[in-house]
């Protein structure tokens, strides 16, 4: 499973129980199965692949662990690998301002 590369290095390390939520200051449209996400305050456009798109859609306040469960159910991927990839992707979503950990202020 390959998640779309986001260039900004993450500052926040996530372990799994944290709840991930889309940043309100974003706009998104899924086009051809890929999410095009604009972070308005950074004026940046990101395109996610199909798995990244699903993670993004699931970032509705549920925990990263439950997002991993959903990804394992929906894609052919080992749980260990899915957990690594989803956490890494979630950290990058937070780093670019596309998502935040619920209860924390956006970076």
């Amino acid at each position: 499973m390959t998640l779309n590369e986001l260039k900004t290095e993450p500052k926040t390390k996530l372990s799994g129980p944290e709840c991930l939520v889309q940043n309100e200051r974003t706009a998104c449209r899924v086009i051809g199965g890929k999410a095009v996400v604009i972070t308005i305050d950074h004026n940046q456009v990101h395109v996610f692949n199909s798995v990244g798109t699903r993670v993004w859609q699931l970032a509705d306040g549920r925990s990263i662990d439950s997002i991993v469960e959903a990804i394992v159910d929906e894609f052919e991927v080992e749980r260990v690998q899915a957990a690594l990839d989803v956490r890494s992707f979630a950290e990058r979503l937070v780093a670019v301002g596309a998502a935040r950990v619920a209860g924390e202020r956006p970076e």
């Binding site: 309100e24 200051r25 974003t26 706009a27 998104c28 449209r29 095009v36 604009i38 308005i40 004026n43």
Partner: peptide, 17 residues
Amino acid sequence: QTGLRPSAEQELLAALD
């Protein structure tokens, strides 16, 4: 740039689509 509001960006994405 058309707006600084999420709804404006959302509308723009729909238009571009």
